[in-house]
Design a protein around this nucleic acid. Structure first.
Lengths: 348, 348
DNA sequence: CTGAAAGCGCTTACAG
DNA sequence: CTGAAAGCGCTTACAG
């Protein structure tokens, strides 16, 4: 900047007061009595000089950075992640802004060493971290937590008792399957969104199972296939499902991306959706509305997850943590065309 | 943090050297001769104490924040923006990381006063700003630029000579239309992505026009309709197009989202794509692959745009700006099913 | 009610 | 080759 920054010193000189007074007035420090006239003189001088406080100096003196960071582990599920990021990040940023924080975005690539975000904490760059897609074998995480550094997870890592936000995957999956059951389906196939090493994947499978059990229906392993993040895995998973002795009349795919592949496989075989096979997905990515038929799915509140993660983190930073440090948000069943309910067959 | 942070002072004591030496060794300052033994002693002490430099203190002393920010104007075209953000932000962040910078994400809502990002610059929070979706009537922008604050725009604002990154909208649109022309179409309708108040919208229309002119085809105003960011506007735009005396056999929609609406309108009327009407979009949002038929479109290199924006900004910050401060990236025509070329009719 | 002063943890001329 | 010292622009006890 060619234009030099005015400092509190300049304002003090211009207003004829001490630097302390300037600081007090500008920060509106309570319990300090400064005459209205003096106060106004300072404010006027600040405005006249176009003063902006130097956040760096403020940080060094106060020990507070007023910054949080989103640590984003880029997984193999790039496509879902991409659909998830905008809402999540907006939610975080809006909440952060509301509470007076800035947010640093820090993606970590799969091959990057896991301590890539540690310097954000240790170097006092941020007051706290939101970690998305934490790895259960990450030693840095628990060490930071032990050292009392404010952390909120999005994802699933219940080993350490680190605060977190998430949706209830079990209930949400149950809702999806119950919807299909209510439509009269009794042979419902399931394609997981990923291997069961992923907690969310296992939870969604559990939800499927519990929905069946509620109605006293058997859990048939031949109706369960394992997806692996991408569409192609959904397409491949349909093969054995359709080759069953008694093929399913409905499919619950635990992610929309996998559901897309399932849709492709069905179309390739000339099967109609929802008439021949009904399909319900999970996530409600933007493409769900555009695919034919439009996909019935479970909406994950990405913005809300981001907002509550930031809100939770801020409360922890301010040493005012809520009693419940694990925030669970509701999901919604979004009924579109792929389940057949919109055609008038809905019984629920 | 319960665990106290070690400072350079502690390291100096542990290694038995001065604080200056510690700073020199840790920063690997060139042209300063320190014996290998001393150097090693310092390094060992730093490691042993688990030292991380305090970035805030470093910033205050050096005057450099090593941080840039992405200022994201959330427009009415939320959906496209969402599809654009992940790649763009990843590109920025990766480049920034490569050059040793952090990145702050700062969304600005439509109703937020336009100076929301000024404090990032004036308060010395960042060394430079990437502004996406700049507003031509934003006085803060030109003032910051005049004051020599490093700025890179993504979007279009050629009034002030502020560095920028973008794709060549005119050429890209020409490519899309030429593809349709090569497939034999002569009545090609166009739906803009937005009103012509948006420069990109006008440029894409220009590309359409120029492609026709190249072949000596007339520019027929009745074949041009105006979209407005959302699908519904694409659907509505199809009405007058199909009501023409001589309806178009192909449609160039200047955004994928608008193209989605066009596809809906065609399906509603029982027209087949691409057999009855071919469609080409623009942007290559994730949903383009999933829609039926899969949408032929122009791929915008979101990651590359982000990367080059950050790279350009870093060079400007380092006072090493390239000669050409307006970076234009190539786009690709992605041929899928909606244009009819993949069915074997392609002549290009 | 207001001010002089120490201090946050670094960097960087400058001196030896 | 290495160190003493000033300074970055704030905040905040502390003293009057």
């Amino acid at each position: 900047m060619t234009q030099s920054h005015p400092t509190q010193r300049q304002i003090a000189e211009a207003a004829g007061v001490s630097r302390t007074t300037v600081s007090f007035v500008l920060n509106d420090v309570p319990d300090v009595r400064i005459s209205p006239e003096t106060r106004q003189r300072v404010l006027d001088a600040a405005r006249r000089l176009n003063y902006y406080p130097d956040v760096t100096a403020r940080r060094l003196a106060s020990g507070k950075t007023s910054t949080i960071a989103l640590v984003w582990h880029c997984g193999p599920d790039q496509c879902y992640q991409d659909a998830f990021l905008p809402g999540f990040l907006q939610g975080i940023t809006r909440a952060a802004h509301h509470y007076g924080y800035y947010v640093i975005f820090r993606p970590i690539e799969p091959d990057e060493p896991g301590d890539g975000y540690v310097e954000l904490a240790r170097g006092r760059q941020t007051d706290g971290l939101i970690i998305s897609g934490p790895r259960s074998d990450d030693p840095n995480l628990s060490r930071l937590h032990q050292d009392g550094f404010p952390l909120v997870l999005h994802g699933w890592l219940r080993s350490a008792d680190i605060p977190s936000t998430d949706v209830d995957n079990v209930c949400s999956a149950m809702t999806a399957v119950q919807h299909l059951l209510a439509l009269g389906h009794r042979r419902i196939g399931m394609i997981t969104n990923a291997s069961l090493a992923y907690v969310a994947s296992r939870q969604r499978l559990d939800g499927y199972r519990q929905a069946l059990e509620q109605l006293g229906l058997p859990y048939d392993e031949s109706l369960v296939q394992y997806g692996d993040f991408v569409e192609e895995s959904g397409r491949a998973a349909m093969e054995p499902l359709l080759a069953c002795d008694e093929p399913p009349t409905a499919i619950f795919a635990a992610s929309d991306v996998v559901a897309m592949g399932a849709l492709w496989a069905l179309r390739d075989r000339g099967l109609r959706v929802p008439e021949d096979v009904a399909v319900v997905g999970f996530d409600d990515i933007p493409a769900a509305r555009f695919v034919t038929p439009a996909l019935t799915t479970i909406r994950v509140p990405t913005f809300g997850l981001g907002w509550s993660a930031a809100e939770l983190l801020v409360r922890i930073i301010d040493r005012d943590p809520p009693k419940e440090i694990h925030v669970i948000l509701e999901t919604d069943l979004v009924v579109r065309d792929s389940c057949g309910a919109s055609a008038g067959a809905c019984q629920s």
